[in-house]
Amino acid sequence: MDLLSAYRDMLTIRLFEESLLRCADQGLVPGTIHPYTGQEAVAVGVLGARHPAEWVVSFYRCHGHALAAGCSPERVMREILGRRGGLCGGKSGSMHLADRANRLLGSTSIVAAQLPVAAGAAMAARLDGAGHAALVFCGDGALGAGGAYETLSIAAAQRLPLLVVCEDNGWQDQTASEWVRHLSPTELVGGLNLPHVQVDGNDVEAVRDAATDALAACRAGAGPQVIVARTYLRDFHAQLGEHPPPPYRPEQERRRWAARDPLTVAAGRIPTDLTSLHAEVAAEIDALLLAALAAGEPDPATATTGVSVTADLIGAGR
């Protein structure tokens, strides 16, 4: 893989998210924001191995997945800021990004609800016969939900070309995963006898290699594959309103992971100086942000359209 290009993609996500967190502190983000900071290597590594025709399904921590899937950073930023020209017209906001053109099959704010949707896309891909797979991201918290097991069980029985990428960051909001489960994600999927691999989620090359192999297996008819990417949130679970949550994880744990930041890991393998790249990407993000903030708001008349074809036909929005 082109490590420098992957580094640039991760850096774009990092600066994009940090820029939005500053906006949130100033009250410019409607609703909530779940930053992807710290997990960039997972999205960039996995989606670098995706065929552009393959659907990818995400969840509420979706900004990094969207950018790595090729969505326009400008339109994503406008959506998150609730501005005119957003990816979903201001209706989805931060947690529910969807982009048909880039085959981002939605993001859900209901934990684990994306898994059966992705299995449906995988079944459709097999019926289409083009040899494609479907991809889905989830957190480790999703493996506490019954729907995860229903989906994995059906996908295995049907040998669906489904790649499940579990971003195991060890926390479910402010609850440590180990407080509420008896086995790790790797042990859980192993117990279901599903082909799986645990990978360093902060190493973009390792993630990319694992995804390349797993997708090849999916496409070759070997059934569902699971990648458990061990990673960590650099900032926090979520911010609602103008104040970040107070620290809720052990300081030592945070420091340990910060030393293994995915950008640091990748930079250590790139011989060239990255200073000018940082300045270049920062300028791009600043420009996006300024344009988004200057864009004005969506037309309020659009609030009542698009609920259903029938409602639009008879004008039943109000």
Binding site: P30, G31, G82, G90, K91, S94, P298, P300, T302, A303
Partner: peptide, 8 residues
């Protein structure tokens, strides 16, 4: 919807 303008 999420955008404040759409809630009006």
């Amino acid at each position: 919807p999420v955008s404040a303008a759409l809630l009006d």
